[in-house]
Design a protein around this nucleic acid. Structure first.
Lengths: 186, 186
DNA sequence: CCGTTTCCGAACATGGTGTCCCGTGTCGAA
DNA sequence: TTCGACACGGGACACCATGTTCGGAAACGG
């Protein structure tokens, strides 16, 4: 493993403390003093590892594997990312709820949206769509629908399974996308 | 008009200052001192009218007419709210950009999402959908698509006109919704 | 014109932030 | 096992933003 054992321990304690505190009070309400207190770590130690609260959030975010999905090479299926993502989200339920929900402060949500937009855009282009302002609007809709579904689950507004979420996403979005692809492709 | 002229003046100055500052620095970075400074108003005066920064935001939000759309009585058309909303948004461009964009801190965005969810849900039920968990998922998708589009425009990712945004929204979402309505309605 | 309301400005307590330093303890490599 | 390097704790610090209080001055509406 890389580096000093103490370093790994400290960083882990701080990250876990932040996640726990977000779930309790919401990101905005959490202070560095809270984190330091909960992690049982000296204040100066905190600033030796992270620049601020947001830095801890981002460092934890990088461990969220589902934000960096496999490119899903040459799959004919549209939106192949959907099902695996919903499942991965359920596996890391606690972490994802803390980071992506309303309590997470929106920062992670925004980042996820950007990553997903690139992904969807590439898929649509690969499926025959031409780059155009209209395509960007379509991407915004598709990503919005997915993120809306994800947020509903994360915030506990639904108890649907990954399979059901995936099905709902496809049912809502695929007909419109296929119709949009048919015309400009011809 | 209601109340003292000084009161109206002060409240207006503070609200305008916050909007201007959000557009410059983003909601989170704005301090009460900033607002008081920009509005050229005494600090104690600020707290005589508002409890905190968020209170100013919410009071301004109440003036956003498009968040309280007309019920659009008995229109056969699906998602009749879409076009008027996009147009109203363009009219109040500056205000909406400040409140609903990434710089707005997400609070207004969240509130709009909730209001819109109720609206969409009612429309779908009126169109023959049964209340069910599946319907809630569909609503989440539709609202997500709309908000995604709105956010893209607000954040300057597109320069599309209200008519184009409306068309993109309907094209992406209507086919899926109609398909979903057909089965459980039978 | 006068009583009432609002405004201002300054001061204050509180609490979070980020930095610094030094004594102590732990690590890993030689 | 020893030793140099590094991490940790904890306290003190300056800084800034928050929200409250007060008395005198100014503007309001009737």
């Amino acid at each position: 493993m890389s580096g000093d054992r103490r370093v790994r321990r400290t960083r882990r304690l701080i990250q876990e403390a932040l996640v726990a505190l977000i779930l309790e009070k919401g990101y905005d309400a959490v202070t560095v003093s809270d984190i330091v207190d909960r992690a049982d770590v000296g204040r100066s130690t905190f600033y030796a590892h992270f620049t601020d609260k947001q830095d801890v959030l981002f460092s934890t975010m990088r461990d969220l594997a589902f934000l960096h999905p496999v490119p899903a090479a040459g799959s004919a299926e549209l939106f192949a990312f959907s099902r695996p993502m919903f499942e991965h989200v359920r596996e890391q339920e606690r972490l994802v709820r803390a980071l992506m929900g309303r309590r997470g402060g929106g920062l992670v949500h925004a980042r996820g949206e950007r990553l997903l937009s690139a992904l969807v855009r590439n898929e649509l282009v690969a499926a025959g769509a031409r780059s155009s302002p209209a395509l960007d609007l379509l991407v915004a809709c598709v990503v919005g629908a997915f993120m809306g579904l994800l947020r509903a689950w994360v915030d506990g507004e639904t108890t649907a399974s990954p399979a059901e979420l995936d099905a709902a996403f496809r049912a809502a979005v695929e007909p419109g996308v296929r119709a949009a692809l048919a015309l400009p492709a011809s």
